[in-house]
């Protein structure tokens, strides 16, 4: 797939974004763009600052410097509950399902910011169509689901807010290889249906396979940014992240 950047409207634009915890700089002057319709991945080793960057994009940790714009509006220093209303949904690391609520209640929580009941009901149906497993378990409490099912639930829940940009934080974490495969197929499908996605992932191989573009992060800095295919054949990336 050839997505030329110039033709696409820029959806998310981070410039010189910094995140610091106390004196420790976790993210250092990162520039990152996500264009409408793209699936962009952010890969890198544990502790490279990927999650910090993502959390700062959705307002959960404050940026210590730099700016974030989404569809032209500034999101810098906005609290997360406002950022959600701009159309950015996060699937948190470790899934974060409401384990004592039922599957259906979880999905309804995803639509918390919406008030259009009829549309919410139809979106609930489409999540159930996408994930038949969730429909089977609609009345079951989320904590009793398997890891993969919980990941599906977390993704479904995020989709319930009708996001323009979906942020996925380590969706493959702690899942069996078969399930990882399945989750990535789902991510590709959602992307093909027109949802823009920013994917943070340690499994670089799969992430680059499904993405259009990719960023490589190393100790808080973006060291490489390119088309996903180019990154996948980059000898440096192959050695450091693809185990060759």
């Amino acid at each position: 797939m050839d997505l030329s950047e110039a033709l696409l409207a820029s959806l998310l634009e981070a410039r010189k974004l910094c995140v610091a915890y106390g004196g420790v700089k976790a993210v250092k002057r990162v520039d990152l763009d996500v264009n409408a319709g793209e699936l962009v991945c952010l890969i890198g080793a544990n502790g490279a600052g990927k999650t910090s960057l993502l959390k700062s994009l959705c307002g959960m940790v404050p940026a210590s410097g730099g700016t974030v714009h989404f569809r032209g509006a500034s999101l810098t220093h906005k609290p997360s509950h406002e950022i959600v209303r701009h159309g950015i949904a996060l699937v948190p690391e470790g899934r974060g399902v409401f384990s004592r609520m039922t599957v259906k209640e979880n999905l309804e929580m995803g639509a918390h910011i919406r008030h259009d009941r009829a549309a919410i009901a139809s979106d609930l149906d489409s999540v159930f169509t996408r994930f038949p497993r969730l429909k089977e378990r609609a009345a079951q409490k989320a904590g009793t689901l398997s890891g993969g099912e919980q990941q599906m639930l977390a993704i479904g829940r995020a989709l319930m807010s009708r996001p323009q940009l979906l942020l996925l934080d380590e969706p493959s974490m702690g899942l069996a290889p078969l399930m990882v495969q399945k989750i990535f197929e789902t991510i590709r499908e959602i992307s093909q249906q027109g949802v823009t996605i920013l994917l943070v992932e340690q499994n670089a191989k799969l992430a680059l396979e499904v993405s259009h573009r990719g960023y490589v992060m190393e100790s808080g800095e973006v060291t490489l940014a390119d088309e996903a295919r180019a990154l996948a054949s980059n000898p440096e990336v192959r050695r450091a992240y693809l185990g060759e």
Binding site: M60, G96, V97
Partner: peptide, 8 residues
């Protein structure tokens, strides 16, 4: 954290 991500 998840509650925050729901826009609460």
């Amino acid at each position: 954290t998840a509650a925050e991500a729901m826009g609460i």
